[in-house]
C-alpha cells in the first residue's frame, strides 16, 4: 500500500551545497575574533609588609634613568623636556650600555659584546656604572593617561629587547617570540639577558597636580 508511489530519483541535489557552505563560512568570518592574548608583560613588586618599613636603597643618582610623565602627558627625561618618545629607546640603550665604571665582572661582559653594542658605550662617568647597576625609573601622575604610560614602557622594553637580541644575533621580534620551551630557545633567552637585568622601576604615581 505504501508502495504505490512511483519511485522518483532519490538523489539529493548537491548543487546548492557550496552555497550553504558559503553562507556558513561568511557567518563565521564575520563573528570570528581571533583571540589576541598579546600585550606587554610586567612583573609587579611583592607586596609590602606594613610592619616593615620600605628598604632604604642607596643608589647613585647616575645609575638611575629618570622618566617623569605629568598629568598633561608631558615627558621629563633625565631633567630634560621631551616632545615625543621617539628617541627614548636610544637614550635608554645608551644609558644601559654606558659602562662608566665597570667592575671586573662587567668589564668581561663588555668584552663579550658584539661590536655594534660596544659602540654604544660612551664611558660617561655621569651615567650608569654598568648594566647590573642601571635602573630605569618611570614615574607617572595619577592624571597621566594609560596610553602614554604604556607608550613609555613600550619604548623602555624595546631598548632592552633590542640589546638582548643583538647580543645573540637575532632580531628583536625573533627574541620576543622565544618561548623558552625548548632547550635551544631557553639558551638563547638566557644568553641574551645574562648580566643585563631588565630593571624597570615603576614608581607609585603621585597625586599632586592632577
Amino acid at each position: 500500500m505504501a508502495r504505490k508511489k512511483s519511485r522518483m530519483s532519490t538523489e539529493v541535489s548537491t548543487g546548492s551545497m557550496a552555497d550553504i557552505a558559503f553562507l556558513l563560512l561568511i557567518f563565521f568570518l564575520v563573528t570570528t575574533t581571533i583571540a589576541s592574548d598579546k600585550g606587554i608583560l610586567n612583573i609587579l613588586p611583592p607586596k609590602q609588609d606594613p610592619n616593615v618599613p620600605p628598604p632604604d636603597i642607596k643608589k647613585n643618582e647616575r645609575n638611575i634613568f629618570n622618566i617623569l610623565v605629568n598629568a598633561n602627558d608631558q615627558l621629563l627625561v633625565e631633567g630634560e623636556y621631551l616632545d615625543n618618545t621617539e628617541s627614548l629607546s636610544d637614550d635608554v640603550k645608551a644609558f644601559i650600555l654606558n659602562f662608566g665604571i665597570p667592575d671586573s665582572e662587567y668589564a668581561e661582559l663588555y668584552n663579550g659584546l658584539p661590536a655594534t653594542l660596544k659602540a654604544k658605550s660612551n664611558k660617561d662617568p655621569s651615567s650608569s656604572d654598568h648594566p647590573g647597576e642601571a635602573v630605569v625609573s618611570i614615574k607617572t601622575n595619577r592624571g597621566t593617561s594609560y596610553e602614554r604610560y604604556l607608550e613609555v614602557l613600550d619604548q623602555v622594553k624595546r631598548a632592552y629587547f633590542e640589546i638582548y637580541a643583538e647580543r645573540v644575533g637575532i632580531t628583536a621580534d625573533q627574541y620576543r617570540a622565544l618561548t623558552g620551551k625548548s632547550a635551544s630557545e631557553k639558551d638563547l633567552q638566557d644568553r641574551g639577558k645574562e648580566g643585563i637585568p631588565m630593571a624597570i622601576s615603576i614608581a607609585e604615581p603621585d597625586k599632586i597636580g592632577s
Binding site: S36, K38, G39, I43, P46, Q48
Partner: peptide, 15 residues
C-alpha cells in the same frame, strides 16, 4: 593585585 599576590600582569594591547 600586589596585595592578592598575583604579580604577573599583562597590559593587553594591539600591535
Amino acid at each position: 593585585l600586589r596585595e592578592a599576590d598575583a604579580r604577573k600582569l599583562m597590559y593587553a594591547s594591539t600591535g
